[in-house]
């Protein structure tokens, strides 16, 4: 009897111990640290209650900038990355020669690391010899030239274009998979009833892609909230903190300025935002799978 109840725990033990050590206990300790002022070195921590949180909201202009940038990033991802992904999927979901080649080309950047993409695109944006400015020169559009990553006005958008290049393939592949589960019959029925193509799209394709939309929107929201590698690799949050996002500002506060409490508070903002996205998502998907 005891061995039978004990056995599952034995199988579970390695995963459980590592999970507790690496994720669970540290995140609780981070939460605890977010109520203190501490530089990470001195033995004593000063308790400040919610001070770190209120400081971030009331006094830290870069934090506000970071929040705004995460929001802009999210809006850009939900419209442009998801939109282009859907358009590409619709175009590729046909009898086409070279479909797999096209799909491969559009999806490939997604499997690259953000740092590789960032390094490559930094060169593409190089003010004197990069592709963008050289191409503008060639087209006679010298006045459009910018030091794309060095000007606060353009930097975030320039990084986002690189992220767009990298990210379109993911929703595209998900939408393609979703489109392939849609049967032929409703389209035939609609055609016989005299539906126009845009009507079929609007009343058949979109509703039947609902599941896929839930997945794409959830993954997009999470990815936009966590965005880090590509921004760190291209601008490091600069120029003049104009491209800081929550993740990079958390990194700076914690590991550059040694404001452990502030950094911990930022990371708890991240936890809260991801809970707002993930809890309804998990609830929705588990409810579906039990039916």
């Amino acid at each position: 009897m005891t061995t039978r109840t004990l056995k599952p725990w034995l199988f579970l033990m390695p995963a459980l111990v590592i999970y507790l050590t690496v994720i669970f206990v540290p995140s609780i300790y981070t939460f605890f640290l977010s109520f203190f002022r501490w530089n990470g070195v001195t033995p004593d921590k000063e308790f400040v209650g919610l001070g770190n949180y209120t400081d971030l909201i009331m006094n830290d202009t870069v934090f506000a900038r970071a929040l705004r940038n995460n929001l802009l990033w999210t809006i850009g991802s939900l419209t442009l990355i998801m939109g282009f992904g859907l358009i590409l999927a619709l175009m590729l979901n046909k009898k086409l020669k070279g479909r797999i080649v096209f799909r491969g080309i559009f999806y490939f950047p997604y499997v690259l690391s953000g740092i590789i993409v960032a390094t490559g695109w930094t060169w593409i944006y190089n003010p004197t010899q990069g592709f963008v400015n050289k191409a503008l020169e060639l087209l006679g559009l010298e006045s459009w030239k910018h030091a794309w990553l060095a000007e606060p006005k353009t930097a975030l958008y320039a990084v986002f274009v690189a992220a767009l290049w990298q990210g379109i393939g993911q929703p595209m592949v998900l939408f393609l998979a979703g489109l392939q589960t849609i049967p032929q019959d409703p389209y035939e029925a609609a055609y016989i009833d005299g539906a126009k193509p845009h009507q079929s799209f609007w009343y058949i394709t979109l509703p039947l892609l609902r599941e896929t939309f839930v997945i794409v929107i959830a993954t997009t929201l999470i990815a936009s909230m966590k965005v880090y590698d590509i921004i760190y690799g291209m601008t490091g949050g600069g120029p003049a903190e104009s491209t800081q996002v929550l993740s990079s500002w958390m990194y700076n506060q914690t590991f550059k300025f040694a404001n452990i409490g502030t950094g911990s508070a930022i990371s708890f903002f991240l936890v809260m935002i991801s809970m707002i996205v993930i809890i309804p998502y998990v609830y929705y998907t588990t409810k579906k799978s039990h039916v």
Binding site: P26, Y29, S264, S267, F268, L270
Partner: peptide
């Protein structure tokens, strides 16, 4: 749900 950032200092 826990972003890596929320574990870095204790780790």
């Amino acid at each position: 749900m826990i972003p890596i950032q929320a574990t870095l200092v204790p780790l």
